[in-house]
């Protein structure tokens, strides 16, 4: 388990519900797992100064981001007794209502997955160089700020 190489976490555009369903189905053969936990980040149609966000366009410093995702994976496996973990993040345009981040952790027992999932998501938000350009319906934009 120690020699995991950085994987490519990024997918072009939104993450489809079908992709998520397939990912869940793939774990049915791993019968030592007793608990999964899933985080889905969805693009919110926030209203700012009477204009509504219709999409977020994501860019990233991809090499650094993939290495950071890898560091987060390693740290999480070090801290928590997980069977497996999958992270996918969108690049390019994701419309309001669509999924832009999919984090999936699995373990024999439930308590571990609750804690590990929150840890992974918070680490991603704080430490991975991804940048969101929020596009309004009139095509003007502002840069997303994580709170």
């Amino acid at each position: 388990m120690k020699d995991r190489k950085p994987k490519n976490v990024f997918v072009e555009g939104a993450i489809s519900p079908e992709f998520i369903a397939t990912s869940i189905a793939k774990h049915q053969s791993k019968t030592s797992i007793g608990a999964h936990d899933i985080f889905l980040g969805q693009v919110r149609a926030d209203m700012v100064d009477n204009k509504t966000i219709k999409a977020i366009e994501y860019t990233a410093y991809e090499e650094m981001a993939n290495n950071k995702f890898h560091e987060i994976r390693e740290a999480t496996f070090g801290k928590y007794e997980l069977s497996c973990m999958h992270i996918y993040h969108s690049l390019g345009t994701v419309n309001a209502g669509e999924i832009c981040l999919f984090v999936f952790v699995s373990s024999p027992r439930r308590k571990v997955v609750f804690e590990a999932l929150e840890y992974v998501v918070e680490e991603i938000k704080a430490n991975v160089p991804v940048f969101g350009r929020e596009i309004f319906e009139d095509e003007s934009h502002q840069w997303k700020v994580n709170t």
Partner: peptide
């Protein structure tokens, strides 16, 4: 060298 604005993934 890279200049990075605040991260806003997720």
């Amino acid at each position: 060298i890279a200049l990075l604005p605040p991260f806003s993934g997720g």
